[in-house]
Write a protein that binds this DNA or RNA. Structure first.
Lengths: 184, 184
DNA sequence: CCCTACCGAGACGCAACCGTTCCGTCTCGT
DNA sequence: ACGAGACGGAACGGTTGCGTCTCGGTAGGG
């Protein structure tokens, strides 16, 4: 197996996934875009489904780090900025909602996304909140589960769902309001 | 055109859309599920795309009402409860993310969703906030755009994106935190 | 310098789908 | 009672997709 071929397939896979969506994703189109024979693809993965699961897990492992700036505001700011950067990428902005929608009807894909993206991110965000509780910045009784919805929801809504542009100060203003919500 | 046939097609369309997703939606499958000839479908809409646009706009018109309970807390509570109920429906929970994902690459569908769902809902929520400002419950300088992200984001995240169940008290606790965020 | 394993290209069989057309039946309004 | 037209069902030609397979070419290790 030549690595450059694998790379070309991987790149083409995500471009094709973004432009066609998971439902209409076609192996022929991926091969065409990658400048590769279909056999090169089937030599690596047994099916379209397996290919998707493998490539998505592969790319997802990249994004696991818990901000630790020493303050709740700093940590949240960093957490949001990371997410903002990730969802800024045009491919990600198209692919992420698509995979999440598909996950509601494809169990294996759902488990993959959960294990490789959602759980690590949720754990990371939960750690962030627990640090703040340990520092006394948030009360002991803070509702972590609900807090996580505030850390992720508004930004995801704005960037991925309604896809409206964000002003430079957006993440800062968002941070202030999330902190207020967490403390309520 | 017989109304009961149109109804059967409409029902089958949404069931099929939920189970297959927009990308794999097939006219044959809709006809089969509706117990209807394909001609009955093509007699009503010229293409799958047109059919989707028409049926989605049709169902979306139903959901336009601005809560007006007299208090910010009551209005938000009502707004969230409405959304919660709507996204509780198993068909909606599957279809909505799917259509939103598709909208990133299908301009006509995006415009339809924007005009028939997003704009009315945003306008309704903005009115809610302006009433609160008029009553003095929120400061004049309230950032409405950002506030709208808090009204919609966390609940959508919880119900449609990560699809976790919500406790009975969820909407109440959510309301408290959103109010705190709005006032920050 | 050759052997092996991978390569790009693309044909193949099979299945699904689109949009159209036809059939014979059934339901209306008049 | 009748005629227009919508009905379910089925088949059509053309296209696309999957996964397999066969070519001839090419890169590199021994």
């Amino acid at each position: 197996m030549q690595d450059d071929v694998t790379d070309a397939i991987t790149t083409a896979f995500f471009e094709e996934l973004a432009s066609a969506g998971y439902g209409k994703l076609s192996v022929d189109a991926i091969a065409r875009r990658a400048g590769v024979g279909k056999a090169a693809i089937y030599r690596r993965w047994p099916s379209k489904q397996a290919m998707t699961v493998a490539l998505v897990s592969g790319v997802a492992v990249t994004s696991i780090s818990t901000p630790d700036t020493g303050s709740l505001r700093g940590d949240i700011r960093r957490f949001l900025a990371d997410a903002h950067t990730a969802l800024q990428h045009p491919l990600a902005r198209t692919i992420v909602p698509d995979l999440l929608a598909e996950a509601t009807r494809n169990t294996e894909l759902a488990e993959t996304l959960q294990a490789t993206i959602r759980n690590p991110r949720r754990a990371s965000a939960a750690r962030l909140l627990q640090h703040a509780i340990a520092r006394g910045e948030l009360p002991e009784a803070t509702d972590i589960e609900l807090g996580l919805d505030f850390l992720a929801g508004p930004l995801y809504w704005r960037l991925a769902v309604i896809a409206m542009p964000t002003a430079d100060t957006y993440v800062d203003r968002l941070t202030d309001k999330i902190i207020a919500a967490l403390k309520a």
